[in-house]
Structure formats: structure tokens, C-alpha cells
């Protein structure tokens, strides 16, 4: 690799990462605002303006950053930064709209699975480092919740990759392959039902991943006063807030990449800039729908579960549904019952 192309490559990485970070943060905050507004309307309230999350972050950044006496300062301050960086780095591997991901050829779903754990782990570390009993309880709960949802999440991803391996060759865990071969087009009746079950599992894993009601036990406001985040303030809290916002976009994009990778531009016969614009707009629409269904609707519709109920929900019913989906996909590969189309 010549020096020129290397520097060009480096330039692309830096600019691309910055763009992805800005994109993730801005989009995350906008969707947070939309989520709050829609939830408010569903609860018969007016709700805050959509730009409220931006104001919150701006305000948090100018607030004092308090480190509690019992805390381990370097760990306490490091955790939010690690969390945000890990979350933004996932965006570099996810296809957004019609655009190819920056590191599309380097990472795959398994890497994303691991990267998704890092923000949660950072919160756990930060919680333990705060030296408050509430944060400790919250950190313990976060670990348990993490262990609970990982299993159904892994089942979903493996089921999809496995079914894909019987259709195409190459790295089936690569998102480029998955996006290029939407499974809905290639499965029969059993596989169709299986995919729907897996989609339900992934939609229900999302609130757990994002610590939203009914799985918000690590932060449970009325029980442990914010749990993990109880000692965080100012800049650190703002970073966690941003992590949450970006993670929402990441989870939404992951569901879109796995289940709804379709674009409008081939259908409309567009190309060039117009195609990209249409695709990104369509992607935003898909993201909006996915977030509404997996976050907003669920969180206004149910009460918070207890930690044992969370573990039960993920390990028994959701794992079972995931396994049934997996089995259906396997049977589909053996005995193909064609769909109507």
C-alpha cells in the first residue's frame, strides 16, 4: 500500500468515524425526543418539545461533574467514555440506508454481539466504581439482565446466519451478506413463521438491551433511585445519556439490517445522489417504526418487572420462542413449503 493510498484510507476512517458519531448522536437524540413526545401523547400529556434531549445534554455538559468520595475516580470517569466509544464503533459496522458500512468487510455479527456488551459492561464498572449501595444493586442487576437477554439474542442471530448458510456461501455472519440476501425472499412457509418469531424475540430483547420499561430494573427509578447512574452527574451523565441515545439507533439499525434490509431506490429505478437520499429517508422511516414498536409502545404499555421475573421472561418464554423459530428455520431448509409469492 503506497503512502498516498494509506493516508487516503486513514483520512476516510477519521472522517467516516466522525460522521458516524455525529450521525448516531444527532439521530439518537432526535429519536429520543420523538419517543418522549409520542409516549407523552399516549399517556394523554403534552410532553416536551422534540429538541428537549439536545437541551438536556447541553445543560448536563455545563453542570458540575461530581465524583463521590467512595468512588474510584479514574474508573468512575472512564466508564462513560468507554461506553460511548464502544456504542459509536458499532455504527461503523452497520449498514445505514443504502450506504455500505465503513468497516463492512472487516467485522461481522459476532463482533457486533461483543461490542453490544461493552456499553453495558462499562455501566456495570461505573456502577461498582461509584461506591453507592444503590449503584451496586443496579450494577448487579445490569449483569443479571445482560446474562438473561444474551441467550435469546444469540439464538436469533445464529438462526438467521444458519439459515443463510444453506442458501449462500461465504461468511454468513457478515452483514453485507445478510443485507444482500433478505431471508424473507428465500424461505418457505415454515421459515416465514420462524422469522416472525425471531423478530418478536429481537424486538423484546431491545428494551432489555436499552434498559427500558419493563426491563429497566438496573435503573429502576422508584426502587433504587436510578441505580447505576445514581452518582453520575454533569459531563459523565451526559455521556451515558448519549450512549443510551446512540444505542437506540444501533439496536434499531440491527433489527433493520437483519429483518428489513430493503431499499426503495431499486424499486423506483433511481440512482446517484437521489437514490441515496431516498434510501436514507426510507431508512429513517424504518428506524422510526422499529423504535416505536420496540421501545415506545412497550414502555407505555406495561409495568416494570422484578429481576427474577426479567430472568424468567428471557430464559423461559423468549428462549423457547427463539428455539421454536430456530427449529422452524431448520425444518424449512429440509422441507421447503413454498409461499404464495
Amino acid at each position: 500500500m503506497s503512502f498516498l493510498s494509506l493516508s487516503e484510507w486513514g483520512f476516510k476512517i477519521v472522517i467516516g468515524t466522525l460522521l458516524a458519531a455525529a450521525f448516531g448522536i444527532i439521530l439518537g437524540l432526535v429519536f429520543k425526543g420523538i419517543d418522549r413526545k409520542i409516549a407523552a401523547h399516549m399517556q394523554a400529556r403534552v410532553g416536551p418539545p422534540i429538541r428537549q434531549p439536545f437541551r438536556d445534554v447541553a445543560k448536563l455538559f455545563i453542570k458540575e461533574n461530581i465524583v463521590p468520595e467512595n468512588a474510584i475516580p479514574w474508573l468512575f470517569n472512564l466508564a462513560p467514555i468507554v461506553g460511548l466509544i464502544a456504542t459509536i464503533s458499532i455504527l461503523l459496522y452497520l449498514p445505514i440506508g443504502g450506504l455500505n458500512p465503513l468497516f463492512g468487510d472487516k467485522g461481522d455479527l459476532i463482533l457486533i454481539l461483543y461490542l453490544l456488551i461493552i456499553p453495558s459492561l462499562a455501566m456495570v464498572v461505573g456502577g461498582f466504581a461509584s461506591g453507592s449501595p444503590y449503584a451496586t444493586v443496579g450494577a448487579q442487576r445490569e449483569m443479571i439482565v445482560m446474562m438473561s437477554y444474551e441467550f435469546p439474542l444469540a439464538i436469533t442471530i445464529i438462526a438467521i446466519a444458519w439459515r443463510l448458510s444453506s442458501i449462500v456461501g461465504g461468511n454468513v455472519f457478515s452483514l453485507a451478506t445478510i443485507v444482500a440476501n433478505p431471508l424473507w425472499n428465500n424461505v418457505g412457509l415454515l421459515g416465514f413463521i420462524g422469522l416472525i418469531l425471531l423478530l418478536i424475540v429481537l424486538v423484546l430483547v431491545t428494551p432489555g438491551e436499552l434498559s427500558k420499561i419493563p426491563f429497566d430494573v438496573p435503573e429502576a427509578e422508584t426502587e433504587i433511585a436510578g441505580g447505576l447512574l445514581v452518582e453520575y452527574s454533569g459531563r459523565n451523565l451526559a455521556l451515558f445519556y448519549l450512549t443510551d441515545a446512540v444505542k437506540t439507533v444501533v439496536m434499531g439499525s440491527l433489527i433493520i439490517a437483519l429483518f428489513f434490509p430493503y431499499n426503495l431506490s431499486p424499486l423506483l429505478g433511481l440512482n446517484g445522489y437521489l437514490a441515496s437520499t431516498v434510501d436514507i429517508l426510507f431508512y429513517l422511516l424504518k428506524l422510526f417504526i422499529v423504535i416505536i414498536f420496540s421501545v415506545t409502545l412497550i414502555r407505555v404499555g406495561v409495568a416494570r418487572l422484578k429481576i427474577d421475573q426479567v430472568v424468567y421472561t428471557y430464559w423461559i418464554p423468549l428462549t423457547l420462542v427463539g428455539l421454536i423459530g430456530l427449529v422452524l428455520l431448520m425444518m424449512d431448509a429440509r422441507a421447503f413449503i413454498p409461499l404464495g409469492w
Binding site: A44, R45, I213, T222, V300, A303
Partner: peptide, 13 residues
Amino acid sequence: AAHEVGFDSVLYL
């Protein structure tokens, strides 16, 4: 009571 179990929609209702 609804708020205490994290069911804010019922609180508003």
C-alpha cells in the same frame, strides 16, 4: 401505586 411499579401510563390515566 401505578407509578411505584413503573406503570406511568396508568398514573396519568
